[in-house]
Amino acid sequence: MDNRQSPKQKSHLFSVSTRRKIVTYIILGVGAFISLVPFFWMISTSVMSLGEALGSTFFPSELHFENYAEAWRRAQFSEYFLNSFLITIITLSGELVFSILAAYAFARIDFPGRNFIFTVMLSTMMIPAMVFTIPNFLTVTWLGRITSIPWINNWPALTIPFMGSIFSIFMLRQFFAQVPDELYDSAQIDGAGHLRFLLQVVLPLSKAPVMVIIVLSFIGTWNSLAWPMLVTNTPDWRPISVGLMNFVNEAGQEINLTMAGAFITIVPILIIYFFTQKQFTESIARSGLKG
């Protein structure tokens, strides 16, 4: 125990002295800079001419916004953007509904086999992703063959396999479990069943984790590439990532165009993130607590 410090010194600890503040800001500033540097670089390259993009300049001498038009046209984004939105919305709504229901049951209803089922599902998170490609391809093929809707080259193959998400269930369960039991008891006295309790009490309290799932799933679905390529044969349902990849294959050497194309695909994610970031950071944070 070191008790020799004077009270004056102690006050420096968590109160904010100016010197300390400056150091803090410098460190945070450097952190922010490092976080953002690749972005600056990406954006600035995307408006450069090709020669500049390959040179050693950090800032474009003149702005070539036509790169964006060129990338948009050559990657056929107008064709693929709508597909991406549809795929993402369908996946998200399915995933949300199913995950909320399941997470509620896992969090608040005691039923035989609860832990067993949950653990088994959770362990699938530890399996390398490559294992799933071929069996799932076979499954969607067969589901399309024996049901009346075609799956391959259609929205079911692109969306339904991703509607069951153990990660979402896991995250929501953490939140639903925190809702006080008293609320349920009083709801029950009012004659509300589980579904009503879920819809009227639990969900309004859980906007934040729902946001998290929306953003994370959005990112995941929006960026998926290998699977959509595998299960589509025509451009009808191909998402934007496929368009970008085709374009990058062709324009790989034109970094400025590639960066413009990549930035276009990121924009929707950034928009979603900025609109939800408050709930998002808060709820990510809370989910981490009771891991």
Partner: peptide, 28 residues
């Protein structure tokens, strides 16, 4: 009734995870 509600709630997710998450493991 409580059990049935729970199973009904988890049914879609469980079914999907079984088909697209656990079946592939058996397949592999």
């Amino acid at each position: 009734k409580e059990y049935l509600t729970a199973y009904l709630f988890i049914a879609p997710s469980t079914l999907l995870i079984f088909i697209f998450g656990i079946f592939p493991v058996g397949f592999a």
